[in-house]
Design a protein around this nucleic acid. Structure first.
Lengths: 347, 347
DNA sequence: ACCAATCATTGCAACGTTGCAATAAATGCG
DNA sequence: CGCATTTATTGCAACGTTGCAATGATTGGT
């Protein structure tokens, strides 16, 4: 009679085809259900011998706790929810983010559920749904606004979450954010250092908090360097479009065109750069350009353009790690991190 | 005493702060648990009056069935799993796909869980995990291979799934796929019609079934038109990279360079096109180019390049609809659809 | 007015898990 | 050696749901 064939446990649960449960182990070891359950969760009061026996049996039948059972009993879902708010401009943002989250929950009990809600106003309802139906143990939100209603809601309910982006709320909450101020400052400094006197910054979505951070720092740094700066909010206009390209084209023709441009979106940057070239602008000479980059498409098309990298994959990793710690009860104020921009100066 | 305030039901479940369950409704109506449960599921044997009463009470307390309870009792998870296999080249593929799925499950009880597994060989393990732990009611896979092991596995277990992509298996299974053959044929015809005599096709990942479909059709169509064709598999090389651009550059210099190019990846196309222009090639004159497009970045950068559109959002929608019907028991052979390419001929 | 048949409703058990109170076994101490 | 204490194990109830067998109420036919 075969006693213990580890290879056999692949796909084979029990003599019958049914899934292994605590009961299976209980019968196998002769111990009670409670003991098995306790033991599997590392009960300190158990004899070393029985713990061994249980562990062995569990491994043999390939026991994995039933999520529904646990959830019903304890309320713990072992799920984290990503609320994708996403008219995202950043190329492959979702992909990198999800991959980061996936890698971070690898090896844990957690699953990831994604709730795509592209209508931003309704994304509050999505969060409300999660809270009311206890459908996840924690939430990750992106594109956070300065006084984001989702953040408010979750703080009110004392529900674990992390935001990709900071807020202006007084009460601290967990977040991970790209250090936009550093980005803005770095970009202005670089342009100024290489001779720019009149810088235009093109920013997207004015509803996010990042927008404010970027603009504020931009204006401060420009002032400090004693040069002029203008802000263009490009919200309604599709980042990759003939219209956006035309914007670059028009800019090239302007008598008072800037000699430095900063752009916080790779897609918008590509369009704009094409337009500038249409207008006969020689990049790096007539106009210097710096943009935030989340993929390597821009650098392939315009290898000489300076970029500042935001690593969305790393953000996904970090957000998840923070969230898991938050779920485990760590105070929010110790779960706030920034990721520093990485400069790629070409030439 | 207020009797029925619909506005009050927002966020208020019960006199206490607890979630409404069948018991809540049972107490409220004086009916038994079983009756309430039965009624909510439209029990045919109930009096119209009681059904009304139950429905009213349920609405009043904002009852939503507890997922864990249902799942434990019935085994139904109300979850569909997306197994993201993704060294995806297509820009924003994940985003569009997820948005499509999200829109398709809107209004249903289903949630979406995403299992990112970017190491393709391990993606079989991911599927196995889902099957063994009954962690979803159905699965969506992408980047399907001709004899995809995940497909094999799920068919063996008679588990509901749809694949984005067809296979060569004899047993039918649900799928939705981009009609790559039509794409290849359309592209060759267009190039031939506009004067091309020597066409090069650049295709990605040779492990997917799409690869075979494209290549086969390409060769057949080229032969039929009496022109020459070559196939280049660009697998190891990153789609957006200096290396890929260099490929275009080198191509431009070749004495026997083709006069028509087809590319099945937008990103690779962009890189290649940049390289061709580096080499002094005049697009549309020296070389005609057609590529498959999933975003509007390429068209913004190269407005004159002919493209053929694949709508990934629509694919997500369709895949999900098929899957839900499959879960409801429809036979797989009636759940097989193709999406036709949409040509955008510029000039 | 009685029995059978239909209609409407209900109690019970079970899904897999865990926390608690309770028991049983082993040890310490006087 | 008996009693209190610690150590190890267990039974029970509950989480929210549903399917089934069983009950109770109503109707129709003779």
């Amino acid at each position: 009679m075969t006693k213990f064939r580890p290879e056999a446990s692949r796909g084979i649960r029990k003599p019958s085809g049914k899934r292994a449960t605590l009961k299976t182990i209980s019968e196998l070891t002769g111990l009670s259900l409670s003991t098995v359950s306790l033991s599997l969760r590392g009960g300190a009061s158990l004899k070393e011998e029985t713990r061994q026996k249980v562990a062995e049996a569990a491994a043999q039948v390939g026991y994995v706790p039933d999520r529904a059972g646990v959830r019903l009993r304890t309320g713990k879902t072992n799920v984290i929810a990503l609320v994708l708010d996403g008219s995202d401009e950043a190329i492959d943002f979702s992909r990198h983010m999800i991959r980061g989250i996936g890698d971070a929950i690898g090896g844990t009990r957690y699953h990831l559920t994604v709730m795509p809600e592209f209508d931003r106003s309704r994304s509050v309802e999505t969060v409300r749904y999660i809270l009311e139906n206890r459908t996840a143990d924690g939430v990750i939100i992106t594109h956070t606004g300065a006084r984001d209603r989702r953040v408010q809601l979750m703080m009110d309910h004392d529900f674990p979450f992390v935001s990709h982006g900071r807020t202006e709320f007084f009460t601290p909450h967990a977040f991970h954010d790209f250090h936009s101020e550093a980005f803005a400052e770095l970009a202005v400094e670089r342009l100024a250092d290489t001779g720019a006197r009149d810088i235009l910054i093109s920013v997207g979505d004015g509803t996010t908090n990042n927008y404010h951070n970027i603009v504020r720092t931009f204006e401060r740094t420009v002032a400090r360097r004693g040069i002029t700066g203008r802000v263009v909010v490009q919200d309604g206009i599709r980042p990759a479009s003939a219209e956006m390209r035309q914007f670059g084209r028009d800019l090239a023709d302007k008598p008072d065109r800037p000699d430095g441009i900063i752009c916080d979106s790779e897609t918008r940057a590509i369009s704009m750069l094409c337009g500038l070239e249409d207008g006969g602008v020689l990049l790096g000479r007539d106009i210097r350009f710096i943009c935030k980059q989340t993929s390597d498409i821009l650098s392939t098309v315009f290898p000489n353009v300076d970029t500042i990298e935001e690593d969305v994959y790393a953000a996904g990793l970090e957000l998840t790690r923070l969230l898991l710690r938050r779920i485990d009860g760590e105070p929010a104020e110790s779960l706030q991190t920034l990721s520093e921009p990485v400069a790629h100066w070409r030439s």
